[in-house]
Every structure is written in C-alpha cells, then in structure tokens.
Design a protein around this nucleic acid. Structure first.
Length: 602
RNA sequence: GCCGAUGUGGCUCAGUGGUAGAGCACUCGAUUCGUAAUCGAGCGGUCGCGGGUUCAAAUCCCGCCAUCGGCUCCA
C-alpha cells in the first residue's frame, strides 16, 4: 500500500500557537452557548474555554443533551453567525457584574466572578447574549466561517472538576479559519482511528477481551504472546548486562503486607476485594489480596538475609503481574486494564549510590525507548502537592528525593516539566509520558525515589564501619505496563512492527501446490535460526496470497515458484519496500538473522 | 463511580412492530494460476442478558452487563 498520493500538507496550528484561532474558538464557543440557551432555555452557562484542537462549553441543563441535539445546535449557530452580530467588549465593576448576573439568574457565573481579577470584562454577542470572558474574540460573528466549525461530542463533566459537585453537560466542538482546515482536521482524526490499537489488535489477532473472563482483563493470543515475549526477553537481556537480579514472586499475599506498605490504607477501594476464609476473618481484615504492586514482595526478598554494603546496589527485577480494581468508566483497550504486567525492579542502594544509580536507570530507560524507536515522549518530574496530606514520610525525606530527581534530570539535560501533585504517596517520580492516537496522555516508564518504604519495612544493611544503616529504594519500570506499552507501540507503528518484533516475520507464498515442499524446507531452515516463518497453504492465487500477507502486515513475503526452486532462491517482497526480486536463500537467511540480532529491519 | 451513546453470524455492517439479511472469513467443488481479492455452492445468528407492553418485539418500555466518548481516579 503506497502513500504516494499524499495530499498537500495543510498546517493545522494548535490554539496556543495562533492568536487568530484563539479568537475564532473563543467566539465560536460563545455562539454555541447562545445557541444552546436558545434551544434549551433552562440550560445555564458555566465555563467554555478553548482547547488545543477546538473548544468546549459546560452547561447545567435539566435535560441531557444527546448527540442528536448537536445538529440542531449547529444549525442555530449558523443562523447566529449569519446575523453578523458584533462582538463587543465591556469592562465593568465587580458590583455591576454581580448585578447583571443576578438579573439573569446564573449562579455559576457568580462563582466564576469571585475568582476573577480586575479588570472584569464581559463580551456581548449583539444585544442578546453575554458572558464573563477574558477574550480575545473576533469583532463580528461574520468573521467566523459557518463551514469551518463542527460540534463533535457531548460528555459529562463535573463543575470545577470535582466529583462531589454538580454533573454538567459538556459539548466539544472544533473551529478553523477555513473549511479546508476543518476537512484536513477530520481526515487526520479518521487516519488516527485506523491506527487505534483496539482496532489493529483485533485485526492482527494480538489480544482479545472475553466477557466471561471480565472487563479490563486481556487475553493474549499466540501472536500477541510472541510479541510480549520478545519485549520481555529484550529487556531481560538488557538488565542482565546491567547487573539486575531476576526474582519471581506470587500474585497474592496477606493483607497485612499491604498494610505495612501503606497500599491498603491508600488504595483499599482500588484493590480487588480481599479473600477471607470466613466473615469473622473478613471483619478483622485478615486474609489475602491480589497484589496491586510488586514492591512489598521484593522487599521481603531483600529482608530475608542480613545485607552488607558490599551487596548494594541490589537490583531485584521481575515481570510481575499486578491487579487493580480500576473504575469501570476508566477501562479502555490495553491502556487502562485491571490486570497487567509491570517490568518492575526495586533497587536497594546506599544513600551515596542513589544519584549514580538513578542516572543508570534513566540511561537504561532511554536505551529501551531508543531500541523501540519511541521518540514522542515527555519527561515529567512528578512531585508532591504540599497542600495535600495523602503522603507518608518526613519532609526531609521528600526534599532529598525530589532533589535527587531534579539533579538527575539536569545532569542528563532531559527536557522535562513539573507535575505538582503527581507523586506517589510514598515518594516523587520521574515519569515518561506518551500520547495515543487520540492525543490522550499515558504514563509508560517511571523511576521513583523512595525513602519511606525502607523505613516502614525497617530495611537495613551493614555499613563499612559495621553499623546498621537504612538503604534507599528506587522503584523503576521502563515499560511501565507491558499491556500499555504494546497498545502505544501498535499505534506508533500503525501495526507495522519492525522485523525483530513482528509475530510472523516471513510468509512464504508458493505460486502452486507443487512448490509447497520447497517452501516448507526453507521455513524449517528459518525456524532453526529463530526466524518466525510460515508457508501460506491456502492454495489461493498469488495475488490473493500477497493481499492477505499485506493485510496481516507481514514484513517479509517470499514468493516461491519454478524459478526460485531452480535457483535456490526466494523472490522477496517487503511491506516497506515492495518487490526486491530474487535473492539466494542463504542471503535471505543471513539478512533475517542479522535483522533479529540488531533489532533492525530486513 | 458519574453523564451520554452504542451492542444483529468469527469480522465489518444493513434491517425501527409482521417469516433475520449482505460482503469478507470458514467448509466443499471447479479452476493450476507469478506480486493487493478466480468462480460456484454450502455451513453459520437464544439480534448483549433478564423482565415487561403487544395478537405479534432485533425494533417500544424497565433493569443489568459490556464497549465507546468525556469527567473523576490512576500506587
């Protein structure tokens, strides 16, 4: 499938990059709010900001909006635009704003007003409608192109983003300078949907979800399992080179274990319900729980012997599957599931070793991303929010840990941003954030500095001077969740895995039945070299064999007919480059082998 | 968990009160074929699950489950 007929590139700026789009989207959102209040007179207006690809407006309405209503709202908006209403800015005193809000009985605006700084500005659409707004806006609705906006979806949203407050109705829309931009925006959205890992995962047969098993619990098919194993093996090799020690721990443990770690107190509701022998045990909170984290288990291995400073850093690593009872509305594809495998490791280090070991971990993570050709990520310094009290441990421990993370990011020159309030309850993190096809952000890799769990579990080592000292822990996972990583990889690659990760690397396509035995012989040779190859025995014509192989996104296709048998060759066709012509079998084997070894392509 | 939408053969979808359909996949037969679909026949569905309205429900109503879009949450 060639991308030769690409349309000419249309630049689609984000709102934050374009003053003009800010104006257009601000005003369009006001036009939408005016239209909504015309059609739903009981709807109250709350907030309606621009977002990077459009805008939204939140309404408090006794009648819920349905997708069907969007059409009518859109029509009403076009009428408003065509009336060429002037958009006028008015500066008012706080008292005057209050008076006007009272007169139209919109209590949400009073709350908004309370948070506003002077000058307080009101934007009017003609004579009929106004809202508190800082602008900027276009000068007249006539400047909006009635063919360059659209309403996209309705959604629920809480007032002030607080789930204890009123549930509002949100309408998402988009608006552009020209209809061409809108069309291009929609085209890109459609393209993105084709890369959606849920769609491709099904098409490529990598994983399934089964209703009888339960929501958020993926089942890995043979092809998906090959992919998982390749990723696991790759990282295990990398870790062996770097002095990690493999461990295996069970999927369940006593609730008490999670009480010591603090997970039970913090996340009881987000864990699968405890298993108790009887009601009395349940009431006493005595029983077993599916593990939501691996750290308490690794800690027990550390604690099982008296440790010397000579053993540190001790890097215990496990692909540990954890279970979290995620909220039902949060589940989706592989990016948010209830059972997932963490490429987890816990590093027990002396305070002196912390900074260097932290750098080593980040180096590993970046090497992993590099091998997977992942470039589109951001590093987040996830620190605690001093206003919240959900954290354990002393201020001193937190300051030390946050300082170590900040220095590491500086030392590496890692472009990063701070996420205040994004820390774990036991310590700050350095997180690596990726986007899916719908621009939603997901955390993959993470490194966490932890002074607290060593304290809670009373961890020790014998120092050089013979005294008992407290180690520091680093929690780290380059993939984060194998499930989520694979979801992101599918979308990054659009289903076209690099040769070394493709579940099926080569498919041999015999042009007739009489060439099957030759093809089978070649496949045997390939398999002996660890190459994942198969023969298409469907008996279809070559065109169909190729079509199916292309649809299955097999990276290397090898056509076998009389000419190839004669010359002990294969006619190679790749997904990436099309027909390459006849190549000797020995050469093909060699190139495939090298591709696997180098994590490269054919 | 909250708001809204959706749920029809393995897959993609049509069917809005009156006998469940198509294409692909699958099976069988014919075709022996060289770089993105050979032809024909056949098999396959408790219309997500449970209840209700009706002479009659895939279709209307209620409850539940799941998926999707958001919100909230994310150790």
């Amino acid at each position: 499938m060639s991308e030769a007929n690409q349309p000419e590139k249309i630049h689609l700026p984000k709102t934050s990059e374009s003053e003009n789009l800010k104006k257009i989207r601000h005003t369009t959102s006001h036009v939408m709010a005016m239209a909504v209040q015309k059609l739903f007179p009981k709807a109250q207006v709350t907030i309606g900001p621009w977002i990077e690809n459009g805008f939204y407006y939140d309404f408090d309405s006794p009648e819920p909006f349905a997708e069907k209503d969007l059409k009518a709202i859109r029509k009403e908006m076009i009428k408003i635009i065509n009336r060429k209403l002037p958009v006028t800015r008015e500066e008012v005193t706080r008292e005057e704003a209050e008076r006007r809000i009272q007169s139209i009985n919109e209590p949400y605006k009073l709350e908004i007003l309370a948070d506003l700084q002077e000058p307080i500005t009101i934007y009017h659409l003609g004579e009929q409608w106004w809202d508190l707004c800082a602008g900027p806006h276009v000068e007249n609705t006539a400047e909006l192109n009635a063919n360059a906006f659209d309403l996209e979806s309705v959604a629920g949203a809480y007032w002030r983003g607080d789930e204890t407050k009123a549930q509002l109705q949100r309408i998402y829309g988009t608006a552009w300078e020209t209809p061409e931009q809108l069309a291009e925006y929609k085209r890109r959205k459609e393209e993105a949907l084709k890369r959606d890992h849920r769609k491709l995962g099904k098409e490529l047969g990598l994983f399934i979800f089964a209703d009888p098993v339960g929501p958020g619990l993926p089942l890995w098919t043979p092809k998906g399992t090959i992919l998982r194993s390749l990723l696991e093996d790759f990282l295990k090799q990398e870790q062996l080179k770097r002095g990690y020690l493999p461990v295996v721990t069970p999927h369940i443990g006593r609730v008490d274990l999670f009480k010591i770690s603090g997970h039970w107190q913090n996340y009881k509701e987000d864990m699968f319900p405890m298993m108790a022998e009887d009601d009395a045990a349940r009431l006493a909170e005595q029983g077993f729980a599916l593990k939501p984290m691996n750290c308490p288990f690794h800690i027990q291995i550390y604690k099982s012997e008296l440790r010397s400073y000579r053993e540190l850093p001790m890097r215990l690593a496990e692909f540990g599957t954890v279970y979290r009872y995620e909220q039902s509305g949060e589940l989706g594809g592989l990016t948010r599931v209830r059972g997932f495998t963490v490429d987890d490791s816990h590093l027990f280090v002396t305070p002196d070793q912390l900074e260097q070991e932290f750098l080593n971990v980040v180096d590993l993570i970046l090497a992993v991303f590099n091998a997977l050709q992942l470039k589109n990520f951001r590093a987040r310094l996830s620190f605690r929010d001093p206003k919240l009290d959900k954290y354990i441990g002393s201020d001193d421990a937190w300051e030390k840990a946050e300082g170590a993370i900040r220095r590491a990011a500086d030392t590496l020159g890692l472009p990063s941003f701070e996420g205040i309030g994004e820390a774990a309850f036991y310590g700050p993190k350095l997180d690596f954030i990726f986007q899916d096809v719908l621009d939603r952000e997901w955390q993959l890799g993470t490194v966490q500095v932890d002074y607290n769990l060593p304290e809670r579990f009373d961890l020790e080592y014998v120092a050089e001077d013979g005294t008992r000292k407290r180690p520091v822990m680093i929690h780290r996972a380059p993939f984060g969740s194998l499930e989520r990583l694979i979801g992101i990889l599918i979308e990054e690659y659009a289903g076209d895995f690099p040769l070394w990760l493709a579940p099926t690397q080569v498919r041999l396509l015999p042009v007739g039945e009489e060439f099957r035995s030759y093809a089978s012989d070649v496949v045997s040779k390939m398999r002996a070299l660890g190459i994942r190859a198969e023969v298409d025995t469907s008996g279809d014509r070559l065109g169909k064999l190729i079509r199916n192989a292309e649809k299955d996104k097999i990276p290397v296709m090898a056509v076998v007919g009389a000419k190839e048998v004669e010359g002990n060759a294969l006619s190679i066709r790749t997904r990436a480059d099309g027909e390459l012509g006849a190549i000797a079998v020995a050469t093909v084997l060699d190139r495939l082998k090298v591709g696997n070894e180098n994590h490269g392509n054919f």
